[in-house]
């Protein structure tokens, strides 16, 4: 049963999410279409370059790239947009007794809605023409939930850190651009030399992306469950860490906003 405080929290998160969705492309002609089109265009171009120009040979490359690239875009946009969010909302946070976390949750939910819309737009025609294991499609919502909770933990941590260390957001941008090449998104993990493959498997962003790739390409229950467990570990470790950091710094935040 949802308590009063939790119900207020989620109502405020939903109201802010809707406002974010409305305002993001208000002055544009195509509006919401741009939000969905951007990842789809990125996906189409990368699919062409990596598969047809650079000849990365994987069966069902379109599905493989879908499982890696779109979750990556969700992660990247979420980290870049939520890291400075507490600083940007500083004046508002000091004006009313409002839970600062509603701003983090709302931005994340906004990005998750856009991610789901873009993912479905690509998945549906691919599933029709290429064929996807129906059990793999059933597994996708689990992969999505684990991705959401893992990204939430990282965003929560970084948004608080950015209040005290203002160049956190620049470091995040830099690290993400490096990790794009170091994370097996457009190439399979098997191409990474075996001696350093363990390093890739320590990358939390890859751990959250991996269940999507397993669900879409040659789905088998056991490897999928194993990848989901690794993805869940990111949330299990990250959420208590973020909560503890938040609890410790909650008061001081207002001094630095």
């Amino acid at each position: 049963m949802i308590t009063g405080a939790a119900s207020i929290f989620w109502r405020q998160v939903l109201a802010l999410t809707l406002a974010n969705l409305k305002s993001r492309y208000r002055k544009t002609v195509a509006g919401f279409v741009w939000v969905v089109m951007n990842p789809i265009l990125m996906y189409s171009v990368q699919c062409y370059i990596f598969h047809w120009v650079l000849h990365i040979e994987i069966a069902n490359y379109q599905l493989f790239l879908l499982g890696g690239l779109l979750p990556w875009i969700f992660i990247m946009q979420s980290l870049e947009m939520t890291t400075p969010i507490l600083v940007n909302s500083g004046r508002l946070l000091k004006s009313f007794p409002t839970n600062p976390l509603i701003f983090v949750f709302a931005q994340l939910l906004d990005n998750a809605i856009n991610f789901c819309a873009a993912f479905l737009c690509v998945l549906l025609p691919l599933a029709f023409f290429e064929g996807v294991d129906p059990w793999g499609i059933v597994g996708l919502p689990f992969a999505g939930l684990l991705l959401f909770s893992g990204v939430l933990a990282i965003c929560w941590l970084l948004s608080v850190a950015n209040v005290f260390f203002r160049d956190t957001r620049f470091i995040v941008s830099f690290v993400l651009s490096v990790l794009y090449f170091l994370t097996p998104i457009f190439y399979p993990v098997e191409l990474v030399p075996e001696t350093i493959r363990w390093l890739v498997k320590l990358n939390p962003l890859y751990l959250m992306i991996r269940p999507f790739q397993t669900a879409l390409i040659h789905f088998t229950p056991l490897p999928f469950a194993r990848d989901c467990a690794a993805s869940a570990a990111v949330s299990i470790l990250g959420l208590p860490l973020a909560a503890a950091y938040w609890k410790r710094k909650k008061n001081e935040i207002y001094l630095y906003l």
């Binding site: 802010l16 406002a19 974010n20 409305k22 305002s23 993001r24 208000r26 002055k27 004046r91 508002l92 004006s95």
Partner: peptide
């Protein structure tokens, strides 16, 4: 003197 979404 605060607002939430300047574009709205």
């Amino acid at each position: 003197a605060v607002g939430i979404q300047p574009e709205l």
